[in-house]
């Protein structure tokens, strides 16, 4: 059975920006290994003739005119969006410092 190591779980958790406790690392290693073991069965499917479908309804490049659109109650909309930000200053969303 193919499995994922605890070290790999630590790596993907970091990539996914999720902090895990030691206990959780053990738990997810076991569970993810079991799921990956299950999906491994795809190896048995002969896909030599399969053509990948990019989009299930066959759509390609749905375009629209590059035109400015009017938003009704623009000010009110902005207010509603800003209200949801965890931290703000005036009409700006406050974010942690990224440069030291």
């Amino acid at each position: 059975m193919p499995s994922i190591s605890k070290k790999q779980v630590e790596h993907i958790a970091k990539l996914a920006r999720i902090e895990l406790t030691e206990e959780e690392k053990e738990k997810f290693t076991k569970e993810l290994s079991s799921i990956l073991g299950y999906v491994e069965k795809l190896g048995k499917a002969d896909t030599s003739k399969a053509k990948i479908i990019a989009q299930i309804t066959g759509l390609e490049n749905v375009m629209r005119e590059d035109k400015q659109q009017k938003t009704e109650n623009r000010k009110q909309k902005v207010k509603k969006l800003l209200k949801e930000a965890p931290s703000k200053k005036g009409d700006y969303i406050k974010v942690p410092k990224i440069l030291e």
């Binding site: 994922i4 790999q8 779980v9 993907i12 996914a16 997810f28 569970e31 799921i35 990956l36």
Partner: peptide
């Protein structure tokens, strides 16, 4: 979290 990590793994 399980699904996010699984997805991150299969796309890595």
């Amino acid at each position: 979290r399980r699904r996010i990590m699984l997805g991150t793994y299969v796309l890595s």
